[in-house]
Simulated scan of single mutants.
Amino acid sequence: MPALDLSTHPGHLARRLQQAHTLLWTTIVSEDVTSPQFAVLNTLVGEDGLDQRTVGERVGLDRSTIAEVVRRLVARELVDKVRDAKDARRSVLRLTEQGTRLHHKLSGRTARMNKIFLAPLDPQEQATFLELLHRVSDAAEALRNPTARPSDRPAP
């Protein structure tokens, strides 16, 4: 059997795309804060006081991954995890001042990284590419979490 043409395999291309993203992220944005950690900080900037499960759903992280990301952010004093005043059974997440400052610093770098990442595409291709990524990601999320709806995803 001859070798397969992996250039037609979406998983192979997705892995290569992720490698490119990781290289750009660590080179331009941060060696210390991961993209998922930034996503959590970004979610909390927009809406402080969310519970861990909700934040995980919004950024597309499973329960064990969001728990580890939050643990690391709390350990670095970027996020506080506190008991909900309305329901003592649950904890909510809040950005610390340090977390807010870091988010602000990394936001500009993230924008610069995205510009470089999408530079091979013209503006219309960029919009199409992002729409296609959303569609494939939403379909994959539906396989993992059948109760999620595309409308649950925040607008880009």
Rank of each mutant, 00 (worst) to 15 (best):
R144Q: 12
S7W: 12
T128W: 02
R58N: 01
L13A: 00
W25Q: 04
E131F: 14
L132E: 15
G56E: 03
A142I: 13
S64G: 06
E31M: 09
L17V: 08
T8F: 03
D138F: 01
M113G: 06
R63N: 14
L6N: 08
T128L: 05
D62P: 06
L61N: 13
D84F: 05
R16P: 02
P36W: 09
D80V: 14
L73N: 07
T26S: 09
G56Y: 04
D32E: 15
L6F: 05
A39M: 13
H21E: 12
K86C: 01
K105D: 15
Q52M: 15
G60Q: 07
P36E: 10
H12C: 01
D122A: 08
S30M: 07
D122G: 12
Q126K: 03
A111E: 11
T128P: 04
A75C: 06
M113C: 01
P2Y: 06
V69R: 02
G56T: 05
T110L: 03
Q126N: 00
R144N: 09
H104G: 08
S7D: 07
A155K: 11
A148K: 15
A127F: 02
R153E: 08
R94V: 04
L23Y: 13
L106F: 07
L93V: 09
G60N: 01
D87L: 08
T27H: 14
A140E: 15
E68K: 12
D48C: 08
A148M: 15
G46Y: 04
G11Q: 03
T26L: 07
D152R: 07
H21G: 00
R72T: 10
L143R: 14
N42S: 15
T128Q: 13
R135S: 12
E31K: 14
I66A: 12
S91D: 12
A14E: 02
A39L: 11
K81I: 08
P36T: 07
L6Y: 07
L41F: 01
G56N: 03
N145H: 15
V40K: 04
L17E: 11
A111P: 02
N114W: 09
L41R: 05
S30Y: 03
M1Q: 13
R101V: 07
V82D: 01
T65D: 03
T147W: 02
R53P: 00
A88Q: 11
A85H: 13
L73V: 02
V74D: 08
D84K: 02
H134A: 12
P150S: 08
P120K: 00
N114C: 07
G11K: 01
G108Y: 05
N114S: 08
R149Q: 15
A67K: 14
E125C: 07
L121T: 02
E141W: 11
L50P: 00
P156K: 14
P2W: 01
H104N: 06
T147C: 03
L95V: 09
R94G: 00
E57T: 11
R15L: 10
S151T: 15
A39E: 12
E125A: 11
L143E: 15
P123A: 03
V74N: 09
Q124E: 13
K105T: 14
W25N: 06
E31L: 14
L61H: 14
